[in-house]
Design a protein around this nucleic acid. Structure first.
Length: 230
DNA sequence: AGCACA
């Protein structure tokens, strides 16, 4: 099947991933790298012989997945270009949210599944009405970066907004230098409230973005972090 | 290359 023939899916399938990266780190990196495209429901990576070097990132919206497929295609991730397609099937975490999840052992066909669900609802009324509790990674940030496109393609340079005017580059350095790959802070005297922070590469800048997104230097100033324009 | 959810 041509990869272009796979219908859009809110989950993306990534292959050609460096197999040396340990599973937990890989999941964290993928989460960081993709979280700015939209809310992520789940990241799946297995190290079994059949499944190593591949991963799934499940978004709440297919539009987020579409942007990720396009913008992150061939992104150099741990030295290997990632190859991204839509996933071929619906993710379990999505079925769980929809309440149509059927455990793997006795997985049945679509029609039977619907039938089964009807019966269950009829029989025990509402006893399992919402057995599907959404278990998302973490809440979405409560602010919306204004005037800046949050789906900007990754960049090793971060753009910081909504800083208190009294922020100094030393203060920002203390915050950002905790993250690997930090290089430097750049502020522009004529433009208070913003800064640029440079990292070695896009993966590392993404990590710092994820970690410090919304960080408050003062209670009124949750910082808004995005990738700088190229 | 390889499409899962332990």
């Amino acid at each position: 099947m041509l990869t272009a023939d796979i219908p859009p899916n809110q989950a993306i399938y990534i292959k050609n991933i460096n197999e040396k990266i340990n599973k937990e780190e890989l999941k964290r990196s993928l989460y960081c790298l993709f979280s700015h495209f939209g809310r992520i429901l789940d990241v799946v990576a297995l190290k079994t012989p059949k499944l190593r070097g591949q991963a799934w990132v499940v978004f709440t919206e297919v539009t987020a997945a579409s942007n990720a497929v396009r913008q992150m295609q061939n992104f150099p991730f741990y030295d290997k270009p990632m190859l991204i397609q839509y996933a071929k099937s619906k993710s379990d975490c999505v079925s769980k949210v929809e309440g149509t999840f059927v455990p793997r052992e006795k997985k049945m066909k679509q029609e039977e599944k619907v039938e089964k669900k009807r019966n269950a609802e009829d029989n025990r009324q509402s006893s399992m009405a919402n057995g599907a509790t959404a278990q998302n990674g973490r809440p979405a940030p409560s602010f919306q970066p204004s005037g800046q496109d949050t789906t900007m393609p990754p960049n090793n340079i971060l753009f910081i907004q909504n800083l208190p005017v009294e922020t100094t580059s030393m203060m920002l350095q203390l915050l950002f230098e905790q993250y690997p790959g930090f290089k430097e802070i750049r502020m522009i005297q004529a433009k208070p409230g913003i800064a640029f922070v440079e990292f070695e590469d896009d993966v590392q800048s993404s990590m710092a973005m994820q970690a410090l997104q919304g960080f408050k230097i003062t209670p009124q100033n949750p910082m808004v972090v995005s990738f700088a324009k190229k």
